[in-house]
Nucleic acid binder design. Structure first.
Lengths: 207, 207
DNA sequence: CGCATATATTGCGTGACACGCAATATCGGA
DNA sequence: TCCGATATTGCGTGTCACGCAATATATGCG
């Protein structure tokens, strides 16, 4: 996961990928949610120091480039849960993992606002949050002793957690909100994460 | 909501809209998830009996046209919950509403498979499911005596329900599945819908 | 240290698409 | 039957994603 753990080529690839993504998000924020159409592919490529064709080697749409950071962060949610101590109760582990992941660096309010409040980005933003689900479902299954392919509980809970994070983000972005993101996340997650998981009725037999 | 309740012009508009959407979904199914790129705008318009330009007056992308039916159905979820008897327990009302909405006509397995298993449609499919959330959250708030703007519970639960429906759909589409969609929906929803809602910790003060 | 090879970057060309605009056809209502 | 509102359509334009082939760059080995 760390940089020196992978090939030099892979590191360069990731660097340019992040450069493009950062440039795309920055330009989008500059123009604001109403001027996203003004962010041309050429601008993104130029700002990232690559050719337009190279931009398209990494991303197949501006929306994908803009939301890539959010998507990458979401993908780490499964790992975040796995890194919680084994003895920790399920609900606390999930809540702690989410809060840790989404508040470790001070969350980028401008970026999140751009992504979540721009209609043209809605689909890609939802994709970004949904990226968290498969690895999170795996981690939940491992932690609760369930099976992703046989039980509905892991995937459903993962989807619920992702949805709660999304709703919490929207709430946090609202002008009248004063609470910290961590407080909102905790409140939102406690609505859907059971303190004592019961998957008895969510088990679906497969052959 | 019924046809005769609205203007004749509005009915015609809705008719052509549905014609285009049906044509788009049908053509997409014909080509399968791997050949979506072969479904040209001209084909959709021709199949719907309109000009390409008219197609673009109703939908701004092929993906949107293909997923429109799914989106419209999702939008009715709030109404479905409101139509449940007032005395019914919260969890049972939600589950019954979802099952009623998604199994009243025999669900279109081919359409759902096309929408949920085609990568290019992923974003639009997620948007379609997410369309259910705002009206559903309103209905949940009304039924539970909470406030959508002040409490996280309604929106979070709505997101969790939408996510559960999505996961249930994916499970139902899996080859090895033998249970009915209703059974899967019930199992999935019972993971996230509390039988006795507790929003004490989800209340967030706003000024 | 230099070379061969894999890999990344780039330029160009192409096909498709979304949409603004203005003209036309059509429909609904009086 | 006729008028006005509205939907439909054709055309032109700018943008974009992507296949392909050439070039530049970096990696690993002799």
């Amino acid at each position: 996961m760390t940089d020196d753990a992978m090939d030099l080529r892979a590191r360069n690839r990731r660097a340019t990928r992040e450069a493009i993504s950062h440039a795309a998000l920055r330009l989008a924020i500059e123009q604001g949610p109403h001027g996203l159409a003004l962010v041309r592919v050429t601008d993104i490529a130029t700002a990232a120091g690559v050719s337009p064709r190279t931009y398209n080697n990494y991303f197949s749409s501006r929306e994908e480039a803009i939301c890539a950071l959010q998507a990458d962060q979401a993908r780490r949610l499964g790992e975040a849960l796995r890194s919680r101590p084994a003895g920790e109760p399920f609900d606390q582990a999930v809540i702690a993992a989410v809060i840790e992941l989404y508040t470790d660096p001070e969350p980028d309010k401008a970026g999140l606002r751009m992504i979540m409040q721009t209609p043209e980005l809605e689909g890609e933003a939802l994709k970004a949050f949904t990226m968290a689900e498969p690895p999170l479902a795996e981690a939940i299954a491992d932690r609760t002793g369930t099976d992703v392919t046989r039980d509905l509980f892991p995937a459903v809970t993962a989807a619920a957690v992702a949805g709660a994070v999304r709703v919490a983000g929207r709430h946090w972005l609202a002008p009248a909100t004063t609470e910290s993101f961590a407080t909102i996340l905790r409140a939102a997650l406690s609505c859907v994460v059971p303190s004592t998981p019961d998957f008895s009725s969510s088990r679906c037999r497969r052959d």
